[in-house]
Design a protein around this nucleic acid. Structure first.
Length: 473
RNA sequence: GGGGUCGUGGGCUAGCUUGGUCUAGGCUACGAGACUUGGGCUCUCGUGACCCAGGUUCAAAUCCUGGCGACCCCA
């Protein structure tokens, strides 16, 4: 199955064959994460949560249900999410006096509690995170991992004494997410969303848009400065050093774990299957003995010796010494699962105390001494991540097409590319861009300053921003 | 939100137009065995399916209606 030719089928096949999710659960938009997928998710979350812990965030767990009145407090927020919440209206046969909803996101679950916890400037900043499932009744077609009605994420919520401190927080989180994505070898654009596309209730929103082989962009993370919109609605205030009472300034951010998995699969996978960055691979090295009847004992003993050696080095290693498959079949099998390094040990290797290592990205073989095998494997891990990262970033570069000709927009989007254009920031021009191209303005870069070098692509007046246009999930 | 295509063993699919030799065929996967093993070898045997509910008919995988689900396109 060809990844770039028929992404949708390729993707579904990988998710199924590599046992990431089983989409056959009989409720639309809900799926089962199987063992391989779950272990990948745990490894990703481990990296993220470690980063959050190190920057003073507190892990917490808030309830999945939110009372209707709390949800309704911030008017923009309810406008944005109201149409897609799951309601809990009954307990058995009894109708509930107060309807509850399943969190579509946790602002309105957390902030009533923030109001109780925050009294003085000494309580600030407050930085909280949780890794949970949220629920949104998506009306668009659901896609496994990309758009589910139940999806996993990590959400962070903070409260600060002033705007400057909240701005510092936004920068910190962009840094944290960037670090995590770098360790996964992902490529993306960090875009400040246009005003009409910001999070419901935010002052502004920044998003991480990862490229996808079908030309759409995949929003894998978002960071919002909420200003005092929620702190006014929820009356979250503190007493400052001078005795005055002020509303806190808040930020919140979401790391879309399922979509990050989707991005790893989509950006790194190839026509043979998944390719996993070593740090999140449930199995990092698979050992495949090449045995003949007469020498099976020696070779298997050697393979076990190798297994023990790698294991004590802290490498996640698996020995596939089953005799129901030929070595070739085992190669194909583990390639589907994206195991980054394969160690082949046969009679030749055993006799000379060598190991044949093969890496998943370029399928290149390398023969190393048994004594140096752990170091060689670790070096390969570094190379694999570098190769994945470089390959992915080259694709992203090749997808971006700069244009100042509005009539070319449609063709660019049709060709599964991302258009880079100058825009005057008027909403009428944004709407026209959408009509003409079939894509949407995703925003302008904030990690790199880009000055408009041409007038607005639609109206010809002075452009204010260089923006990126793509179809989105 | 609108339009279209589709639903057959665990996965992929043939059969449906023209209802009856369908006792539903193939590939793959799975189980038992033989033979093999530095890239999917070969063979034998076995397990396993017509999405659900109605309807039409002597007869339904096949036709009709509804539901559920999947995918694609447009907004």
């Amino acid at each position: 199955m060809k990844k770039f030719k028929n992404f949708s089928e390729w993707f579904d096949e990988i998710l199924f064959n590599a046992e990431i999710v089983d989409n056959r659960y009989p409720v639309k938009g809900f799926a089962v994460y199987k063992s391989w997928g779950s272990r990948i998710i745990k490894n990703i979350l481990k990296i993220l949560e470690q980063n959050l812990d190190e920057t003073g965030h507190s892990p917490m767990l808030f309830p999945v249900v939110i009372p209707e009145d709390a949800f309704a407090k911030e008017s923009e927020h309810i406008k944005g999410f109201g149409s897609e919440v799951f309601w809990v209206t009954h307990a058995g046969e009894r109708r509930l006096d107060k309807k509850l909803l399943l969190r579509p996101t946790s602002e309105t679950a957390m902030y009533p509690m923030f109001a109780l916890w925050i009294r003085s400037h000494a309580n600030l900043p407050l930085k909280v995170y949780q890794s949970v499932a949220v629920y949104r009744y998506e009306t668009k077609a659901t896609r496994p991992l990309f758009r589910m009605r139940e999806f996993l994420w990590n959400e962070g919520h903070t409260a600060h004494k002033d705007w400057e401190d909240a701005e510092r927080q936004v920068k910190e989180v962009i840094e944290i997410y960037s670090n995590v994505f770098k360790r996964l070898g992902l490529s993306y654009l960090i875009l400040k969303r246009p005003d009409f596309d910001k999070f419901a209730g935010a002052a502004y929103s920044v998003a991480f848009d990862a490229w996808n082989p079908d030309g759409r962009v995949n929003q894998i993370g978002t960071v919002h400065n909420l200003g005092d919109n929620f702190s006014k609605a929820f009356e979250i205030a503190y007493e400052d050093t001078d005795g005055t009472h002020k509303n806190v300034i808040q930020t919140c951010y979401g790391f879309g774990v399922s979509r990050v998995v989707a991005a790893v699969v989509a950006q790194h996978g190839d026509d043979r299957g998944l390719i996993l960055p070593p740090e999140i691979a449930p199995i990092q090295v698979v050992i495949i003995p090449i045995v003949y009847k007469e020498i099976a004992y020696e070779v298997n003993a050697y393979a076990r010796e190798l297994y023990e050696k790698l294991k004590v080095e802290g490498i996640r290693v698996h020995l596939d010494d089953s005799d129901d498959k030929t070595p070739g079949e085992k190669f194909y099998y583990w390639e589907i699962f994206g195991v980054p390094v394969r160690a082949e040990v046969g009679p030749r290797d055993q006799k000379e105390r060598k190991v044949t290592l093969s890496e998943r990205v370029n399928l290149e073989r390398r023969i190393v001494d048994f004594e140096n095998v752990a170091e060689a494997v670790k070096e390969m891990f570094v190379e694999i991540l570098r190769n994945l990262g470089e390959r992915s970033s080259l694709v992203l570069k090749s997808l971006i097409v700069t244009t100042s000709d509005a009539s070319s927009l449609n063709e660019i989007i049709e060709n599964k590319k991302i258009a880079r254009v100058c825009w005057c920031e008027n909403i009428e021009c944004a709407e026209k861009i959408r009509e003409m191209s079939g894509g949407e303005i995703r925003g302008h870069r904030i990690d790199v300053e880009e000055k408009p070098e041409a007038p607005c692509i639609i109206c010809g007046r002075q452009a204010r921003k260089v923006v990126y246009i793509a179809r989105a999930y």
